[in-house]
Structure formats: C-alpha cells, structure tokens
Write a protein that binds this DNA or RNA. Structure first.
Lengths: 182, 182
DNA sequence: TTTGCTGCAAAAAATTTGCAATATT
DNA sequence: AATATTGCAAATTTTTTGCAGCAAA
C-alpha cells in the first residue's frame, strides 16, 4: 500500500561540538544469521528453512520495510521458498525479540529497521515523500538518560521521530510555487 | 482493553544547567471549545452538539487516553448525548487537525494527549505498569533542530518516547526479589 | 519420539467508509 | 434550500490465532 524508501545518511560537515550524525554499520563478530541461531538455541527453538530464508532476505538489503513490503518481494504461494504471511509476522517478531530488528509505527504500519550491526539511531520522516532518514546523536541519548534519571526511570530503549519536509521536497515545492507565479 | 494512567509531572530539583522538566499548563486566550469553534468556522464546518459535547469531555480531564477509553466513559447508545463510535473517531481526528490534541501510537493503539494549552513535551513509558509520564526538555528540542538542519529538514513536529521501568515498578521488583530469597 | 513450526483460513482489533436520514447554516 | 454531519452497519487493514499435519532435535 504505502512505500518507504531511501534510508540515507549524510556526513556531518558541521560545526558545533559533539555533532555525530553518520550512521555507519558496526563491526560484528556474528552475522545476523549466526546471531539468530544463537537466539533460537538459547531458547530451545528450531532452526527451520523458513526462518533461515527470511533472515537472509531481511538482511540482504539495509532498508526500512514493513511486513507487506517484505512479503511482496518474497516468493508467492506455490513457488519455491514460499513462506506464509503468518510465519513472516511470527518471524519478524522473533527478530525484534532477538535484537536483530527494531520496530516502530509509521502511518499505521509497523516499520522494521535493522538493529543488529547498526548503531542506535533515530529518524527524520518526510511527511511529503515519506522518505525516512537516519541520524545519530550522542547528545540526544545523554538527554534521554538525564530525563529518565530525573524521573527515576531505568531506560530500556527509546524511539524518536522528527517529522518535517526534506530538502528535496522543499526544493520541489519552491520550484512549483515559482512556476505557479508565471 | 488496555489502560493508561497517571500522567504525572515531577519537579526538577536538579542540578545541571538547563534542565527544565515541569510540564505545566500554559495560559491561553481561548478555551479549547473556542479554539475548536474557530477551527470549524475557518473551514466552513458545522458546530454540532456532538462535537461540542466531545470537546467538553475530552478536555474535562488532563489525561492521556485512547478512543476506547473515551468511548467507555461516554453515554451509551440510547442515553442522552450518545455519540457513535464513528463520530468519536472522526472528531478525534479533527481535534488533531485543529491542534487541540496530539496523537501517537502505543502498543497498537492511538493515544491522544492534550496539545492545546500545554507546552511541547515528550513521554516516558513504563513497560511494566504502562504508566505514561511527561517531560519537557528545551535541550532535546535544540538537538532535534540541529539534526534536522544538518539534513536540510524543515521540522514540523516530533515524537519521542523513552521506554523503561518506572521508580515504583523498580521498587516493587526489588522487594519481590528480596522476598523470593526468603 | 517429542514438541516446536508451518500454512491455512478464520478471528481479532482498531478504524474507516458508504449511505440514507437529519441537522446546521 | 443547500450541504455538512451523524448513526449504523458493513468494510478495511493489519496482525494474530487455532489447529491439523509436518519437521527439527
């Protein structure tokens, strides 16, 4: 139904002190597959072909996606490696439990984001083109911890999303307005 | 189905520089009712008894709520002032458009929060007791703006939620663990 | 073998929508 | 009078669940 795209990261050519923004892959000792295997084993769960195939697909590209999008690019019923909708949902949830994926809500859908192998980050969401950008800020985390401490909270995680209009959409709009004047 | 409660605000007895946390009502020249009237008029929409009644109910208590909770404390079908589910949903959406309410997703539900008459704030969510606390941080907003600027975004809004375990739940847990040892 | 897992279809949960009747402006 | 709004029920949308048969360990 809806599409998400272009999870970009730009370099901080900036200015002020502690501005870290680049969201770069981390080095990991285990591949997502291996990490998932560990998770399954630790819980007495089974290594099935469906789970293996799904993890492979999910980590074959670093993009945000929702269940529907994932299912769309998977083999159809009858084809090889077909996985039922129910199993896709079940496996996505397991990935979140296993710390491989992160999930959040966007326009009513659950969006998944690679967690394993990526630094903690948050998102900028363009309300015009629905593009999702990532950013990373240690300062943000520091404030988070400060706020939590103030209220006696022990932090488990956080989600932040900044809604706005991206550079491209602003440009597009400006151009259009100019044309409208002609 | 689920219940949300106790939107508290604690005072910052703190310490470090710019820590502002108290979320206190703002002074407003218009009541929510009046503000909604303006909104309706400006769009050629109508002032109906249902809308009037709903705004009244929604602003009669400063709490987070979802559609289900609201409907529960409203008159039932057959009673005076009954408002259909569809209208409740439609009106809540209008409130968001009108800037009276804010909404965000929590555990699969849409949660509404008073926006009009309250300073911009974010939330701490206890994953154990599902309590929602508010906090306010200018620093957070500053970082938000900085991150947006870095990516060429024009900010429209943001949502942040910190998940964790609240003071009370931590205590409860600790006590329980102690008992378990006996 | 034992028990977890999968696919299927049906169920759920939370909104949304079509439409005829009704109420505002 | 013109048309926005409401209530109702049916439809959507997204995700979950029950269950019988299948498959890892």
């Amino acid at each position: 139904m809806a599409e998400l795209s272009e999870s970009t990261s730009e370099t901080a050519k900036s200015s002020s002190e502690t501005v870290a923004t680049k969201v770069q892959p981390l080095e990991t000792s285990l591949s997502p597959q291996e990490r998932f295997s560990e998770y399954l084993q630790s819980r007495g769960l089974r290594q099935t072909s469906q789970r293996k195939f799904l993890i492979e697909q999910v980590f074959s590209q670093h993009e945000h996606f929702d269940a529907e999008e994932l299912i769309e690019r998977l083999p159809r019923r009858g084809e090889d490696n077909y996985v039922s909708t129910a199993t896709v949902y079940r496996t996505l949830r397991e990935c979140v439990d296993a710390g491989l994926l992160n999930s959040f809500q966007l326009d009513g859908r659950t969006v998944y984001d690679h967690d394993y192998g990526y630094p903690e980050h948050d998102h900028l969401y363009c309300t015009r083109c629905r593009k999702l950008l990532e950013f990373q800020s240690d300062e943000l985390v520091a404030i988070r911890d400060q706020m939590a401490a103030l209220h006696g909270f022990r932090v488990e995680s956080h989600k932040m999303i900044i809604n706005g209009v991206c550079r491209e959409c602003s440009r597009r709009r400006r151009k259009k307005r100019k044309q409208d004047l002609v």
